[in-house]
C-alpha cells in the first residue's frame, strides 16, 4: 500500500565499535560550547547596554569599555561555571549520553576535560575583551599607570623577576586545581546522592534527596578538608619551603582529593548510578 520496495542499497556492514575518547570529548564539548556562546552573547549585550547607559549619563571615555568588560566578567565566570557543571552532570544521568558504548572512565575524563576546555574558552574570550578595552583606553591608562609607578616605585627587594613569575605560576596552578576540585566534588556529590536515592523509599523523593544532598555535601567537604590538611601536615615535615612556596602543600592535597573523588565517581557510574527513566 505504500509502494514500499525493499531497498537494494548496500548499507554499512555491522560492526562492534566502542566510541573513542576523541568522539565522546567532541560531543560533550559541543553541548557545552553552545551554552557558553549563548552566555557570551548575553554578556556582550550587557556590555553594550552598559556603554549606552554611560553615554546617556554623559561620562563615556576611552576606558569605559574596559570598565564595562571588567564589571561583567565576574558574573560571566560564575554563570559559566554553573552552566558547564550542569551540562556536565547531565551526561551521567541522561540516556542520551549513558547509552553510548564508552567505558565509564573515558566518559568521566572526557567530560571533565571538556568542562575544563570550555571554561578556558570563556576565560580566553574575557582576556580578549579586556585586551580590547585596554587597547582602546591605552593612552589614558599609560598616563595613569605612569603616575602610579612614579608615586610608588615598585620595590622588588631581593626577589628577581623569575621568583615573581614562579609565584604567579604557583598561584595560577592553585586556582586551576581549585577549579577542577570544585567540578570533581560536584560530580562526586551528585553521583553519591543519585546512587543512594535508589535504595531509599520512592515516596517524598524531593525531600529525601534534599536531606541527602545536605548530608553528603557536609561529609564530602569534611573528609576532603581533612585529607588536604593531613596531606599538608605529612608533607610539610619533609619540606623546608617558605612563604608562598608553601602553596605546593595544599595543591598536592587537593590533587589527592581530586584523584580519590574521580576514582570513586567512576566506580559509582559503573555500579550504581542509573539514568533518569524515559
Amino acid at each position: 500500500m505504500w509502494g514500499l520496495k525493499p531497498t537494494t542499497r548496500v548499507y554499512t556492514k555491522r560492526g562492534t565499535t566502542m566510541t573513542s575518547f576523541g568522539r565522546i570529548f567532541k560531543v560533550l564539548t559541543r553541548s557545552k560550547f553552545r551554552e557558553a556562546n549563548l552566555l557570551l552573547l548575553i554578556q556582550l549585550i550587557a556590555i553594550a547596554v552598559s556603554l549606552v547607559w554611560i553615554l546617556i549619563t554623559g561620562t563615556l571615555s576611552t576606558t569605559s569599555l574596559l570598565q564595562a568588560v571588567s564589571s561583567w566578567a565576574g558574573v560571566t565566570y560564575v554563570v559559566g561555571f554553573y552552566l558547564i557543571a550542569r551540562r556536565s552532570e547531565q551526561a551521567y544521568t541522561q540516556d542520551t549520553f549513558r547509552l553510548i558504548p564508552v567505558e565509564e572512565t573515558r566518559l568521566y575524563l572526557g567530560n571533565l576535560l571538556s568542562s575544563f576546555v570550555m571554561f578556558f574558552y570563556i576565560v580566553g574570550v574575557e582576556v580578549l575583551l579586556h585586551l580590547a578595552g585596554i587597547g582602546i583606553g591605552w593612552n589614558v591608562l599609560r598616563k595613569d599607570m605612569g603616575s602610579i609607578f612614579s608615586a610608588h616605585p615598585v620595590d622588588l627587594g631581593p626577589n628577581s623577576p623569575w621568583d615573581i613569575a614562579k609565584v604567579a605560576m604557583i598561584i595560577a596552578l592553585l586556582l586551576l586545581v581549585v577549579l577542577i576540585l570544585m567540578w570533581t566534588t560536584i560530580t562526586f556529590v551528585h553521583l553519591v546522592v543519585s546512587a543512594t536515592s535508589n535504595f531509599l523509599p520512592s515516596a517524598s523523593k524531593r525531600l529525601v534527596n534534599f536531606v541527602l544532598y545536605i548530608v553528603v555535601i557536609f561529609l564530602v567537604v569534611r573528609v576532603a578538608a581533612f585529607l588536604i590538611v593531613l596531606f599538608s601536615k605529612v608533607t610539610s615535615s619533609f619540606s623546608i619551603g617558605s612563604g608562598l612556596m608553601n602553596l605546593w602543600l595544599p595543591i598536592g592535597g587537593m590533587v589527592l582529593v581530586i584523584v580519590i573523588e574521580s576514582a570513586a565517581s567512576v566506580f559509582l557510574l559503573k555500579k550504581w548510578v542509573e539514568t533518569v527513566p524515559n
Binding site: M18, S31, A91, T96, L99, I100, V102, V276, N278
Partner: peptide, 19 residues
Amino acid sequence: VVGERKQHVSFTEQLRGFA
C-alpha cells in the same frame, strides 16, 4: 559487561540530554 553490551543494543531514548 555493560560497556560492551551497549555496542549491541539500540534503545529508543527520549533525547532528553539535548537542549
